[in-house]
Design a protein around this nucleic acid. Structure first.
Lengths: 222, 222
DNA sequence: GTCTATACAAGGATAGAC
DNA sequence: GTCTATCCTTGTATAGAC
């Protein structure tokens, strides 16, 4: 019933509630989710929910800050794999970021965080520091290593990071926006986009800067 | 009080309600917005709201589908300006897409559409067809013209479009996510990102493909 | 078109027995 | 830890006078 794992080894009842609540929050949003529905899905009475979580807000925070470590594990393993060349490492890291943001529960949380950002600011902070920022750190390390080894050549570090994460984060948002469409993939075919995205990124990072600069000044050139 | 214009020349009271409702929806989301608050902000009684809009849902649909034409006008003018070179045209179009998605009310609606996508599917469809799809069409036309004139060289059209819109759409989402932060621009400095983004895009489209392919096979090279 | 008053449902949260 | 029962607030929406 729940398509993802809830991490931790606490009491199983609590974990079941977290899983069901996460699923319903993702489907309906924070405000539109009723505690009674979470209770029903978890097979207990509404009042019993309040034994495990003191409030709806606390339940949401628990859902929204759960599973960070699991979701990021793949990416960190790729960063530390000594057998990978820099190009392969980057390509695999991009694939991992797609999985993290499109397939994991945390990734799908992003639009929800936007919804509650002003009423529960702490959850936005936790989401940023524990999930988003860490992805940028790991990816930044991969790029830095490639630069140091001469595999990559690039200025515009900030713009480059945005061109790595932006297309992926926007895909996650658009999936939610078009969730009611008959076939979401017709609007945004993820597999094809992912392939072309990685190809374009590598082309940007393989150091065509000199030739580009040369071809861009035809005016004064002889 | 309301930072953007509501288009149309209907009764001013209706336009005032639309403007205030849009502002509050953007700040609190759909479910968390109360009709009583919209009424108070508009200076009328709650019951009077229902004379202008039959339901909260209808009010939201009106807000979410208002102002498309105004928001897109700049971009369409840039596409049709005969005095622009292709590179300048692209750069200005990118700037326009930043303004459209970050500064206009419609652009800021995106996370909200995600929130209500499943409960009001019609609004997601209207938003896609009237706002998102049209931006892609215009930008696609600009790219096609540049390709036809030989100003641009690129395969991976789909990936390229995602690399144009993705970083911008994700910025809009992240602005909402980090709305409660002290200084959002510290997390994502929009001005710098926009400049680097446009530069990287132009580099991708200026046809370094041959040289890139040449430098990418150093193994067999002497 | 705007108001006052109200119907009616649903939601979050608590009390207290077992 | 879980239950039943209940409190209290808020929300959408309507009725009907002016």
């Amino acid at each position: 019933m729940v398509p993802f794992e809830i991490e931790g080894d606490g009491p199983s009842r609590r974990r079941l509630i977290l899983a069901e609540a996460t699923r319903i929050f993702l489907e309906k949003g924070f405000s539109a989710t009723a505690m009674s529905e979470v209770a029903k899905a978890s097979g207990i009475q509404k009042a019993s929910l309040y034994h495990h979580f003191p409030s709806k807000e606390a339940l949401f925070v628990a859902c929204a800050t759960n599973g960070f470590a699991d979701a990021l594990a793949d990416l960190e393993a790729i960063r530390n794999d000594p057998d990978l060349g820099d190009d392969d490492r980057l390509r695999r890291a991009v694939d991992a970021v797609y999985r993290i943001n499109l397939d994991s529960a945390c990734g799908q949380m992003a639009p929800l965080i936007a919804e509650v950002s002003r009423t529960i600011p702490t959850v936005a902070r936790a989401f940023y520091e524990g999930f988003i920022y860490k992805q940028h750190i790991v990816m930044g390390g991969i790029i830095d290593d490639g630069l140091a080894r001469g595999s990559f050549v690039t200025r515009e570090r900030l713009g480059l990071e945005q061109m790595i994460f932006g297309p992926i984060v926007s895909l996650a948002l658009e999936r939610e926006m078009f969730a009611a469409f008959d076939d979401v993939d017709a609007v945004r075919p993820v597999d094809q986009i992912r392939e072309e995205h990685a190809t374009l990124l590598l082309r940007l990072m393989k150091g065509d800067t000199e030739t580009t600069r040369a071809t861009r000044v035809p005016k004064g050139a002889p």
